[in-house]
Amino acid sequence: MTPQEVYNIMIERDRFSKWLGLEMDEIREGYCKLHYTVKEDMLNGFERIHGGVLFSASDSAFAFACNSHGIITVALDVSITFTNPAKAGDVLYVEAEELHLGNKTGLYDIRTTNEEGKLVCLFKGTAYRTGREVQ
């Protein structure tokens, strides 16, 4: 199964990623790049993007990248560091890259940047490969 076929299966069932407005730019084995526009209802009390939105978009990119091999893969451990704010109307780019792929685990670096290329957050994920094929 190709990475695009895996993504198509996942996004068909992933109502949350659709609700976030995530749009895929590129998908290949161990990698994905997507983007979305920050909406008013994604803001916190200081009118900046809520950290939960950044986390969720990063987590979705992580899921698309680590499942791209066609093996059902789930998160074991994740962490996020916030570096710069974003506001309504900003377009954010989320790029997930596989750093290591083993028999049972994978390590991923997920970076969110703004239109100027500034880092908005850095998300690191460790994934567990179940051995079951995506269907």
Rank of each mutant, 00 (worst) to 15 (best):
F55V: 00
T73C: 14
V6L: 07
L92V: 08
F123E: 05
E133R: 15
K33I: 00
R13L: 11
A127M: 11
T2G: 11
G70C: 05
D25I: 13
K124M: 13
M10K: 04
L119S: 12
E98Q: 14
T126M: 15
I71Y: 06
F64A: 04
A75E: 04
R48A: 11
L76G: 12
L43W: 09
E40I: 00
P3T: 01
D59W: 07
T130Q: 04
E47W: 10
F62N: 02
R132N: 14
G106I: 00
C32I: 03
Y93D: 02
V74A: 14
G30R: 07
I27V: 14
G70K: 05
V38I: 15
L22S: 00
V91Y: 01
G117Q: 10
R129K: 15
Q4E: 13
R132E: 13
T81Q: 11
E29H: 13
T113W: 01
G117W: 10
F62A: 00
E116L: 13
E40G: 10
S60G: 00
C32G: 04
L99R: 08
E29G: 09
R48N: 13
R15Q: 14
H100V: 08
F55T: 04
T83W: 01
A75M: 04
I27M: 14
H69S: 13
H50I: 05
V78T: 14
F64Q: 03
A61S: 08
A65I: 00
H100E: 08
T112D: 02
E23F: 04
T112K: 03
D41H: 15
I80G: 01
N114W: 09
M24S: 10
D77Q: 15
K118A: 10
M10Y: 13
L101G: 02
G125I: 12
E40P: 15
P3D: 11
M24W: 07
A75S: 13
V74L: 14
T83L: 13
M1R: 12
V94R: 03
H50G: 02
F82H: 12
D41V: 07
T83A: 05
S79E: 05
M24I: 15
E26I: 02
E47Y: 13
G70M: 02
V94S: 08
N44G: 09
R48G: 09
A96W: 01
L54D: 01
A63R: 00
F46W: 11
V53H: 00
G51Q: 10
G131Q: 07
V38H: 06
V74P: 06
K18N: 06
E23T: 15
V6C: 11
L119V: 15
S17A: 14
Q135C: 07
N103T: 08
G131I: 07
I9V: 12
N114L: 04
S17Y: 04
I80T: 05
A127K: 09
G51P: 10
D109T: 02
